[in-house]
Write a protein that binds this DNA or RNA. Structure first.
Lengths: 352, 352
DNA sequence: GATTAGCACTCATTCGAGTCGAGTGCTAAC
DNA sequence: GTTAGCACTCGACTCGAATGAGTGCTAATC
């Protein structure tokens, strides 16, 4: 399930060459590849029979397998992993970086991200996913209660990255302006500058005690504000180009594409992927992640691969962008396009 | 393109019976229905030959057609329209109403609507769509500028129905609290109680004049507020159960299902439908609409039908809910389930 | 004049047989 | 260790026959 680095030592040079050839060929054609093809299209001067023996070995070691007796081989998850870790040519990645995805700068981060997803999907022919920045580590910057009507208050909460949360609070009886003023002061002095996840139950009860007077109403207001702060329902995930999944016969025929799109709709599985990617990038080094087939927990996703990257635009605006494709996706291109997009995002938000 | 009422007089009783039988049968099986089937399963005691003659007439009149020579008939759009307008049994609709969709009341309307869509999709096996309430007719209830940081203001706008809009405004130089206070007063006295669409350019320039002092900064702030008010980007449309479209072979094989799901992703076409439905219900009578095939402008949708209803929960919270299915959808069930859902929505928001 | 039985015809679908070709594994020779 | 050769497997494709649901038309019947 988890990603394991494959030691390069297990395979001798010739096996590596053959494995590479099998994978490259399969990525292009999508058809099982046979010994004859390999013996022709590699620089190794070997007959198909020799290749067959080697391939038989590779199969035993779990890098490739046959969909049915007496057909060519296709890579296993382990094979793909080896390819992604050791075989991908850096050159191609460079070339791809020059690609011109042009993100227009928009007012809202959300709009930019949606657009980014659209571009990714259009350029790669895979499905793109983008998560809105997670906010629970962000620090509270501004908090204000206002009376909107006699019996309703509006709480506005702004955190780093200018992400805004709102909450309407219905009160049982009217609260006078004076009390609101005091509440605002109280909340701000105690909560300002704290990260959302630091605002826990203990702190809330403390606040309530401090509030002192007419506990009932005030405490219900405080509760509501706390609710709003902690609500993490805001991990939104957008997808774009979901139907691109239908372009790949190996997913289409078996009806797996439908499952995958369903998974997209439910978001939960996507959340897992996003979170995994965020966790892996916590250390700070911003690298791309690749998850292949079973490396993802979600059963519906076991027939695809995902390339993810974490964007970090400062001010706590940190989230994940991903490309979902079939396992035989063009990893070079996907990673190249992703890299290019990330660079652009960085630039846009540095100039700001 | 537009819906035309079909006069019932065009068809004699026998033709009506036969047409009904054809449609009912086709709705069930999804296969072209032949004369023999009809002669067996109707109370008319007629031979298949007679039915054939009648069917030939019906074809000439445009109610049914043959997918290829010498196969059974299937209904045309006109046929479906006639069925929906005149033939659907009210009884079944009653029965369906008893169905128990149970919407949990949630804090936010948005959450309730999303849930409603999910329920609809799950119960009907079609795709559900829900539009967030349109707000441009709603009246402004509360407007407030606050200073969040030295160079940034936050505008909070609340309209009827407690729909909240936010906008961060970057200012070139710091604005002092006093000015903000004045601005708030100015904006509120002039704009409060107006509907969003009443706040037009003329009004804005007037406001700017009134503002008087340091026009540059203040007017840019006013502009930003006006922008935020008018931004109608907030017509969100959610879909649920998109992949249900794949359950219907007539859409699946031809690849039309993919087109349709693509259309869902782009929202624009859906917007048209939503707007059409809203317009039609403007008069106030809250009825369900049915759009069949070509009655919708969108080309990708010409192979499906949509049942829409307008929800109106008071306070200007008005939007559209729809069910999208193949043309041979079970209109009775769809409309029944929809009705039931609308009733529940009403109830939830009346008790509130 | 409406209804029906009968017949010739059409056309999509299914099925099996046959062929093809890509591929393998194994063995024996180099 | 490498390779040529051969028997074998198995999916994909083609083709024609059989099937069967359905039609339109005509002539007989009520």
């Amino acid at each position: 399930m988890a990603k394991e680095a494959v030691k390069i030592t297990e395979l001798d040079e010739r096996k590596v060459k053959i494995l590479t050839a099998v994978i490259r060929n399969y990525l292009e054609t999508g058809e099982p590849v046979g010994s004859r093809t390999i013996s022709k299209y590699t620089d190794l001067q070997l007959s198909s029979a020799t290749i067959r023996n080697e391939m038989s070995d590779l199969e035993e070691m779990g890098y490739i397998f046959q969909p049915h007796t007496s057909s060519g081989r296709i890579p296993t998850d382990k094979g793909y992993r080896f390819y992604v870790d050791n075989l991908m040519s850096e050159k191609e990645r460079e070339i791809q970086e020059k690609e011109d995805l042009i993100i227009e700068k928009a007012d809202k981060l959300e709009a930019v991200l949606k657009q980014a997803a659209k571009l990714l999907a259009a350029n790669t022919n895979y499905t793109a996913l983008v998560s809105s920045p997670e906010t629970h580590r962000n620090k509270l910057k501004f908090l204000q209660l206002s009376k909107v009507e006699k019996d309703s208050l509006l709480a506005v909460i702004v955190v780093e990255g200018n992400i805004i949360k709102n909450k309407m609070i219905q009160t049982e009886e009217e609260i006078d302006e004076d009390t609101i003023l005091k509440l605002n002061l109280l909340l701000n002095t105690h909560l300002n500058g704290l990260s959302l996840e630091e605002i826990n139950l203990g702190l809330i009860t403390l606040l309530k005690e401090r509030a002192g007077m007419h506990t009932e109403i005030v405490s219900s207001v405080i509760d509501a504000v706390a609710d709003a702060i902690r609500a993490d329902e805001d991990l939104e995930i957008y997808t774009s180009g979901a139907t691109n999944m239908f372009k790949y016969p190996e997913l289409m025929d078996s009806g797996k594409a439908t499952d995958i799109i369903n998974t997209f709709e439910n978001k939960e599985e996507l959340e897992k992927i996003v979170n995994a990617s965020l966790a892996e990038n916590n250390a700070g080094k911003n690298e791309m992640q690749v998850y292949i087939g079973k490396e993802m927990a979600s059963p519906a996703m076991q027939d695809c691969s995902v390339v993810t990257a974490t964007y970090d635009l400062g001010d706590g605006m940190r989230g994940t962008i991903g490309i979902v494709g079939p396992k035989r996706m063009d990893y070079e291109k996907a990673m190249g396009t992703m890299q290019s997009l990330m660079n652009q995002l960085d630039e846009i938000y540095k100039k700001k």
